[in-house]
Amino acid sequence: MTNLDNLYREIIMEHYKNPRNKGLLDDPKYTKIRIKNPSCGDDITVQTLVEDGIIKDCRQEATGCSISVASASVLTEIMINKPVDEAIRLAENFLNMVSNKEYDETLDLEEAEVFGGVKQFPARIKCASIAWVAFKDTLGKE
């Protein structure tokens, strides 16, 4: 099962079982976006707090498959304390990476690199992407 092992990496499973920055805050300073994937039942919400062009906090609430839940968790860890423009660049780069499009390999995606295996599973691209799309949307709503 070499192929599947590229998907179910230890870090991914670890985040799936212990998702970081989980639970939403009822704080109007945060911007919140919820995306559901009706075909598979994924339900992901991402919340960001931006101050002075910096992502001060990023939170998530995700139910769904391991890939979508872990990807939401990894996202929040990476994004906290990033400047907004860099965060957007990273998110776009991540989305290109998982969907097997051209992406900038020199940009440091940190732990999110582990989702590189997703591109071999076209049916799972959406799972890895949802949280990152929601994240970008929270910034667009500023």
Binding site: M1, N3, L4, L7, Y8, P38, S39, C40, G41, D42, G64, C65, S66, I67, S68, F121, A123, R124, C127
Partner: peptide, 21 residues
């Protein structure tokens, strides 16, 4: 095991099922 994870295993084995809602 979420259905979407399970289905990937079957797909790798060339078994076509449906997962989701």
């Amino acid at each position: 095991v979420p259905a979407h994870d399970a289905i990937t295993y079957y797909a790798e084995k060339n078994i076509a099922l449906r997962s989701g809602q």
